[in-house]
């Protein structure tokens, strides 16, 4: 059972773009309030399904082909924090924008937390096998339109209320879809890194001469 009990401070601060900035007490307090409200509002839901990759229609573009090169099967997964988190952020945008910005960053860290728990769950299921990291539509040349297809395969609109809109954006917005490859043999170490990241050109970490941990 995946639950959201807390959200990583470090990760939230990283999303806020300020690993180097010293936290003052006001900022600490704001983070505390946001964490409490976010954890209360979030209703994490997830789905996964193991599929054969051949003829799955999920291999489009070079990046995912390379990513799943050693895999014959894969898990399609999705996860969401639910509609109440969107509402919380929306409401904060009216009453307190500073809080909204923190909540938004923190929700990003929270959905990552949920996905990390899902990673562990899959690893347990596939004991003795090797899993790739989550590859999501939108990375590199992997078409974002596949989000809808993954959700349909998982029956996600009905089962957990996760949909896409006409532009393939996920709604509720604090959500993820991805493919995790399964292999019998050890996988060649492939760091995620800047090469597959769409933010590579605009990334504030790179500008500052550092990297995120992606």
């Amino acid at each position: 059972m995946i639950e959201l009990k807390n959200v990583s401070r470090e990760e939230t601060i990283r999303y806020l773009g300020g690993a180097e900035i010293e936290l003052n007490s006001a900022m600490e307090r704001l983070l505390d309030v946001c964490e409490e409200e976010l954890v209360r509002a979030a209703v994490p839901k997830y789905l996964y399904k193991k599929i054969e990759l051949e003829n799955s229609g999920l291999i489009e573009g070079e990046a995912v082909k390379k990513h799943l090169a050693e895999c014959e099967s894969a898990y399609v997964i999705c996860a969401t924090l639910g509609a109440a988190v969107d509402r919380l952020i929306r409401s904060a945008q009216v009453s307190d924008m500073a809080k909204a910005v923190v909540l938004d960053a923190m929700a990003g860290a929270a959905i990552e937390n949920v996905c990390a728990q899902l990673d562990l769950l899959l690893a347990e299921k596939e004991d003795g096998k090797y899993l790739t990291w989550r590859f999501a539509p939108g990375y590199a040349d992997y078409p974002i339109e596949l989000q809808g297809k993954i959700l349909a395969l998982l029956d996600a609109p009905r089962k957990i209320g996760l949909c896409t809109n006409e532009n393939s954006l996920l709604t509720p917005s604090k959500s993820v879809t991805a493919v995790v490859g399964v292999s019998d043999d050890p996988l060649e170490k492939r760091r995620r890194g800047c090469a597959v990241c769409n933010m590579a050109k605009t990334c504030k970490f790179r500008k500052a001469g550092t990297r995120c941990e992606f």
């Binding site: 300020g18 900035i21 900022m27 500073a98 910005v101 500052a208």
Partner: peptide
């Protein structure tokens, strides 16, 4: 890079 965005907003 001395302040967080929420602080600027505040």
């Amino acid at each position: 890079g001395k302040l967080f965005l929420p602080q600027l907003i505040q």
